[in-house]
Design a protein around this nucleic acid. Sequence first.
DNA 1: GCAGAGGCTTACGTTAACGTAAACGTAAAG
DNA 2: CTTTACGTTTACGTTAACGTAAGCCTCTGC
Lengths: 139, 139
Amino acid sequence: MKSEAASTASAAEAASYSISELAREFDITTRTIRFYEDKGLISPARRGQTRVYSPEDRVRLKLILRGKRLGFSLDESREIIDMYDPAHGNVEQLHRLLQHIEQKRAQLQQQLRDIESLMGELDDAETRARASLAQAENK
Amino acid sequence: MKSEAASTASAAEAASYSISELAREFDITTRTIRFYEDKGLISPARRGQTRVYSPEDRVRLKLILRGKRLGFSLDESREIIDMYDPAHGNVEQLHRLLQHIEQKRAQLQQQLRDIESLMGELDDAETRARASLAQAENK
DNA sequence: GCAGAGGCTTACGTTAACGTAAACGTAAAG
DNA sequence: CTTTACGTTTACGTTAACGTAAGCCTCTGC
């Protein structure tokens, strides 16, 4: 039997991760992970002094990093993560949440358009570059 | 006859823009535009001291802002803009350019995947929020 | 002739997102 | 028993991307 995930030994003991394990997996530094905790984006458990990360913590980290790839600030990523929580109390807050979701959707749609046009331009640039290359070779 | 674009009077006099015109159009400050110039992203002409922006300058500005929406740094945007220039000299540079284009494409594809998943999660979040709302209303 | 309305330069200030380093604790390995 | 590996806190440093403000031209309308 192959060794299991990271720290789980036998049955269903809910895997946990050390800070350096996560750092390695996502190619970031431990400093970065602690920084995110400082900013209130993750709240790992503690065994004594040492941080112990749950699978949920790991998912949060993933969401943060995905946000980064999309150019989101940590505050924006926090907002998005909060949309996931079942913690939205009253009706007014729910309405605000829905508005917020709509805004994010609009932003993502703009990004889609931006990517589409940029992709086209990259195609053009490649075509021109290949043309220049061809001309350079048989000159 | 309706008044033409910004500063062009009669025939084909190649429109030009003042810094504040561009600032208004793109909803940024003049400081920001000058900052981009400082960083070598735009190089407007001068009439005396005053900056005079051509349509090409305006396009560059647009590209920078699109880059920002995609989370690019100014350096990255500069690289992308440079891909457009017909200034790639020798063969080696052309090969590097092609590699660069491929990298950007890969990055954009990752962003596409990220947007897709985030969109799906926004849908889920909306569904849950609407469910909570419905339950709150007929409780 | 002077008050605005722009425009310019120079320069210090600010925020986000970490980097870097010091100084210390602890547990397993040789 | 002392490396070695990993963990912790605290704190100052750094870079990008502007914001903000001061001080100074210059043209246009009244």
